[in-house]
Amino acid sequence: MSQKQQPGEHVFLELRARDAWNQRDYQLALETATEAARIARHNADDNAWWNMTFLMAECLKKTGDYASAQHLAESLKVDALTSRYSDLAARVSIFLAGVMQGQGDLSGAATEARCAVTSGASATGSPELRITAQHALIAALAESDRIDDAWEACLELAEIITPAVAPQIAGEAYWAIGNVAYLRRDTVAGTDYHRRAAGSLSPSNDLDLWAHFNRASAALRLAAGVVEPETLECIERAELAASIVGGSERDKLELSLTRAHWLFLTGQYDAAIERLRPICRSATNIASQTAAEAHQLLGQSLTHSGDPLEGLFQLERSQELFRQAGALDREAQVARLIDDVHRSVES
């Protein structure tokens, strides 16, 4: 029988893995967490093994390997420790909802998010976990174009945000509610909740999250047709933060898409096309619904710049991708755009 390795060894590796994560060196964090999990398993330390395996999944997501992250998280979901503790089950389902949404599986994301809400409600002393689970559900429903259901979930979320909730968690919750308000075309409520989010989130606490928030806020404002200086400021803050933290290829493509949307809405069609072409060529690196948005904007920009035939091709690709993602309302919206282009070409 092999000798057990020293318990302190995997503790030291855990600390190194967390430190690498905090330094945004996700590859080093993954490698160190993998070794820490191996030793923890060898020493029968189930809690340490679980935490390091979950960190491995988070690192895989950060490096853009969503499929491997999902596979690893699914193995954790059926683990005996996860089944025993509601808080662990909620964490895994929240994570799975995010990676499924990131791969365009919106139905699966909504199902996992509902599991997270159920588990989160059973976890004792974890109001912030319940908020995060509700946040995941809202995101999945909104991306699936189930806006009324998402708004109902937002109203439930608003009731559980109390002064006792950590500012960062409250900020993410306000962010989610504002997103859905914009999707409902309620720009007043959307702007109000995003301002609350900006007041709660801090770039000094998590610059990466700050970049994501500002990009997402700008994207939702643009989707609602809010083209004003405050929207451009969000884009510029996101670009500045991203230039500092770096980010994955997916992050860079999504941020470039947001800038392209601004260019399109401000009538700078040639500049929008120049940005959109490389995004569409790299569409496999982003979620199906996000790629669909890029092809839609490229199709509209081409049509406005005098190339309706290529514009139609891009719009048809957008329609197909929205259909694949299960975003049927946006698929129907693109179908109407295609009909409009056909009529203009025939007239």
Rank of each mutant, 00 (worst) to 15 (best):
Q3R: 13
Q5W: 08
A17I: 01
W21P: 00
D25N: 14
A29K: 00
L30D: 00
R41K: 13
A48L: 06
A48Y: 02
W49C: 06
M52L: 11
F54K: 09
M56H: 10
E58D: 07
D65T: 03
Y66K: 13
A67H: 03
E74P: 00
S75L: 11
L88D: 00
A90G: 04
I94T: 08
G102V: 05
S107Q: 12
G108R: 05
A109F: 06
A109H: 01
T118W: 13
I131Q: 01
I131P: 05
T132W: 09
L137M: 09
A140N: 01
E143C: 12
D148V: 12
D149A: 12
L155C: 11
E159F: 08
A166T: 10
P167H: 12
Q168V: 14
A170K: 08
E172W: 07
Y174N: 04
A176T: 00
G178N: 06
N179Y: 13
Y182F: 15
L183M: 09
R185Y: 15
D186P: 00
D186Y: 10
D192A: 15
R196S: 15
R196H: 15
G199I: 05
S202T: 10
S202G: 07
N205M: 14
N205Q: 15
R215L: 06
R237C: 07
A241K: 04
A241N: 04
G246W: 05
G247L: 02
E254I: 03
A260E: 05
T266H: 14
Q268A: 15
D270K: 09
A271R: 14
R275Y: 13
R277A: 04
H295W: 11
L297F: 15
H304A: 15
D307E: 12
P308V: 09
L315N: 00
E316Y: 05
L321F: 04
Q324E: 11
Q324K: 08
G326M: 03
R330P: 11
E331Y: 06
Q333H: 13
A335D: 04
A335V: 01
A335Q: 06
L337E: 08
I338L: 03
V341Y: 00
